[in-house]
């Protein structure tokens, strides 16, 4: 097997003094950390050139455990901060870890506008369908009819389809997998890291503590089995009727296209219009400071 993960070396990427993690037993965030390292090794990138940006939420604590430049920002604004990081130093690989409440609710506008610009970011959205950190409130991606502390009789709202939203906004790589599919997920993150442009990877994850407890799936294993039985790969979903697809999670690559990237266009424009060659000046500032 060529894509066999080499997990034994992953401990070296972590800030050992901070583990064990504060995540609940069976939380999907740890699996996302593993798959990210696996993808990073497959894409042959190093943590020296990666900077991670995150907002507020359970999943946004991930960069705190990883030995790289990380930025823990305000609620919903990681993509706005990441835009600054990327445009300040276009050579850096910027990865954004965000949750569903962070990306879709309070930071929804930042998400669609970064996708519209096609800025070279890799956004990994850990979607657990609930606000886990603040006590289990309903989030914009909670399925219709799901129970939470703010919807004791079931949610009436239709959820956001994040992958479709972002592909509609103009992202160049959009993919959706669950934590039960760690190897396809690693491949998707690898493609996202290699893609020059806005890459969005939605990871459907489990929250046994809040979502599971309120929706009669008390353990992480039960939730993962539910995700496994209720997910359909995109190719298969095309042949199914809408009634059959109700309540199913559609997985796979939604968009993979090659459109002009924002930071490159900006650098070109600045170099063209300024006589001094401003981009070289910005880059030299990093060299002397370090």
């Amino acid at each position: 097997m060529s894509n066999k993960p080499k997990v034994s070396g992953f401990m070296n990427y972590l800030r050992k003094e901070r583990i064990p993690t504060i995540f609940c037993a069976g939380c999907g965030n740890g699996t996302v950390i593993n798959t990210f390292f696996n993808a990073m090794e497959m894409a042959e990138l190093s943590l020296d050139n990666i900077s991670m940006v995150s907002g507020i939420g359970c999943s946004s604590r991930i960069p705190g455990y990883i030995k790289c430049d990380s930025l823990h920002t305000t609620h919903g604004r990681p993509i706005a901060f990441a835009t600054g990081v990327k445009l300040g130093n276009p050579d850096m690989d910027v990865v954004v870890f965000t949750g569903d409440g962070d990306a879709a609710a309070i930071g929804g506008n930042h998400l669609i506008h970064a996708a519209r610009r096609n800025l070279d970011l890799t956004v990994i959205c850990v979607n657990n369908s609930i606000y886990g950190m603040t006590g289990g409130q309903i989030s914009p991606t909670s399925p219709k009819g799901s129970f939470a502390s703010t919807t004791p009789y079931g949610a009436l709202e239709a959820p956001f389809d994040l992958a479709k939203l972002v592909s509609g906004a103009g992202a160049t790589y959009v993919s959706r997998w669950t934590t039960v599919h760690p190897l396809p997920l690693s491949n998707a993150i690898k493609k996202g890291l290699q893609n020059k442009g806005f890459s969005f990877i939605e990871v459907i994850s489990q929250c046994p503590t809040y979502f599971g407890r309120k929706n009669r799936m008390r353990s992480a294993v039960e939730m993962m089995k539910y995700m496994k039985t209720h997910s359909v790969v995109k190719k298969k979903a095309k042949k199914m009727s809408e009634e059959e697809l109700e309540g199913k999670i559609i997985l796979g690559d939604f968009v993979n296209r090659n459109w002009p990237e924002f930071s490159e266009m900006l650098c070109e424009q600045v170099n063209e219009k300024s006589e001094k060659g401003l981009i070289d000046a910005i880059k030299s500032a990093y060299k002397t400071d370090l």
């Binding site: 097997m1 066999k4 993960p5 080499k6 997990v7 034994s8 992953f10 401990m11 972590l14 583990i19 064990p20 993690t21 995540f23 037993a25 069976g26 939380c27 999907g28 965030n29 740890g30 699996t31 950390i33 593993n34 798959t35 696996n38 934590t179 760690p182 190897l183 690693s186 992480a220």
Partner: peptide, 18 residues
């Protein structure tokens, strides 16, 4: 079979398969 699936699924990075 050393497929490493347990290690990559483990949310707490507790398993090492050698």
């Amino acid at each position: 079979k050393k497929c490493n699936l347990c290690a990559i699924l483990c949310p707490d990075l507790a398993i090492t398969v050698e």
